[in-house]
Amino acid sequence: MTGSAETVLIVVRGPSGAGKSSIAARLRAAYGRGIAVVAQDVLRRTVLRERDVPGGANVGLIDVVARHALDHGFHVVVEGILHTGHYGPMLTRLVADHRGRSHLYYLDVDFDETVRRHATRPWAAEVSPQDMAGWYRPHDFLPDGLEHVIGPDSSLDASVERILADSGLVPPGWTPRP
């Protein structure tokens, strides 16, 4: 078991360019201290400098970091592409073991839209649409309906508001838009 009845686990998955990191940053900014962001790209690419492969070391590292933060009373946002084939079993175990509330979201954005969004990033030139095509898996949902699907029409603000409302992580003075 991990975490406590008070901790909240949020998982935000989806294709490259779907808005996962932006949502995680906005959740942290809205909530303030006490929320840990466990970013797949940081652990896989920066810490380990590892490719995304089945059974990669980053899968276990994401799990350990999320559990450690939950066990120390932090709410946790795990975010990344987190393909079901590579990360699904770990995410399913993490949710099953979490004593508190868990909320999982899949950002269901089509390939053309992910490329359009990616082009607005400062580091867009480092990753080509061909690279993105190799990572893209449409409708890569976890089994058993574990996730809420957020479609491409949901704005960043609306997505963050939904997750805050669903999770109960309501920052002081926050009221959802009507």
Rank of each mutant, 00 (worst) to 15 (best):
T175P: 05
V38Q: 04
L156I: 15
H139Q: 14
H75T: 09
M132C: 04
H75W: 02
S21L: 10
E126R: 11
P122Y: 00
A158I: 08
T7V: 13
A57W: 06
P122R: 03
W123Q: 11
A66F: 09
E126Y: 06
T7A: 03
H148P: 04
S21G: 15
A29L: 14
R121I: 03
L142I: 03
E113C: 08
G32E: 07
D63H: 06
V115I: 13
G100D: 07
E113L: 13
E147W: 08
S155G: 11
S155V: 12
G55W: 01
W123V: 01
A125T: 12
H75I: 08
V37P: 08
D41W: 10
F141Y: 15
H118E: 02
V76A: 09
R162T: 12
I35V: 14
P129D: 02
W135F: 07
V59T: 13
A66P: 03
A24Q: 05
G88P: 11
E161Q: 05
H68E: 10
V109I: 15
G3P: 05
V37F: 05
A29E: 14
A5P: 12
G60C: 07
A25P: 12
V127D: 02
V12C: 13
L91H: 01
G17K: 07
V78I: 05
G60W: 06
H72A: 10
P89Y: 02
G56L: 09
G32R: 09
P178M: 04
A18W: 01
V109F: 04
E126S: 15
A165C: 10
R116K: 14
R99E: 09
L104Q: 13
L104A: 14
S128Q: 01
G88Q: 13
Y87E: 07
R121S: 04
D112T: 12
S22Y: 12
I150C: 06
D97G: 03
G60N: 13
D144E: 12
L146T: 11
T46K: 15
S22M: 12
I23A: 10
E126I: 08
R45W: 00
E126H: 12
P176I: 08
L27C: 01
R51K: 14
P122K: 04
D157I: 09
G32P: 06
A165S: 13
S102V: 09
G134R: 01
D131L: 07
